[in-house]
Design a protein around this nucleic acid. Structure first.
Lengths: 111, 111
DNA sequence: GGCTATATGTAGCGCGGCTACTTATAGACG
DNA sequence: CGTCTATAAGTAGCCGCGCTACATATAGCC
């Protein structure tokens, strides 16, 4: 998976991963690995700044906790984040429809 | 359609647009508009540099012609470009499968 | 002590799509 | 003729964001 492909879709992935549950950053990375069958292995330098952006945007909120001596910053969606997730999902659907149409429609399109 | 979403997928769109026919840059932009139902309206500052990148990469070749007093640079796929298009198509399929899985798999995934 | 896993974070790079602009011709309209 | 639109190609430079490469810290195992 070329890295550029994620551009503009990372927020959707993070919001979707937090949908209905609260996770800390490290767990989000693992959840993304699992949920993608190993295809997504996002570096911390990608995920942590992205989470802070989402928090600044008001899409998620975070709480600190300590589990087994290790500090965790646990994130969960806000209402605005839930709305943003819905928007991201429909934007994704529209996006794939458009690209699919162009990629497939070259030769064997019938009107 | 947010501009970032295209990142990393523009080459696929251009190659697919040139699949089985030869077009000049301006016509490619129009073909993309048509083929996407108006959703894609790429600025020339996006398309022309991208075509030159594809030519440097050996995926397309261009020929100059003059039609109605206007200069046209007409592009067509090379064999390498055709192969690249196939690769882009399967990469796209894989990409959408992965993202679809994460975006959809949040709550109602069953194993 | 050293290694791995867990956990969070930052500085700075690099690239590619976009904005804004330039150049040029044909044709329509008044 | 002057102006406007459509057609056609191009460049300079901005900007955002995912990535690389670090730094930091604790728990647990050998």
């Amino acid at each position: 998976m070329k890295p550029d492909a994620l551009r503009g879709h990372l927020d959707a992935l993070l919001l979707a991963t937090l949908d209905g549950r609260q996770l800390h950053g490290y767990a989000i990375i693992e959840a993304l690995q699992e949920g993608s069958g190993g295809a997504l292995d996002l570096p911390t330098g990608t995920v942590y700044p992205a989470l802070r952006r989402l928090e600044r945007a008001g899409h998620v909120v975070s709480d600190w906790s300590t589990v087994g001596g290790r500090k965790r910053r646990t994130y969960k969606l806000t209402q605005a984040g839930q709305r943003a997730l819905n928007a991201e999902r429909s934007a994704w659907r529209e996006f794939t429809t458009v690209i699919d149409g162009v990629l497939g429609g070259g030769k064997w399109a019938q009107t």
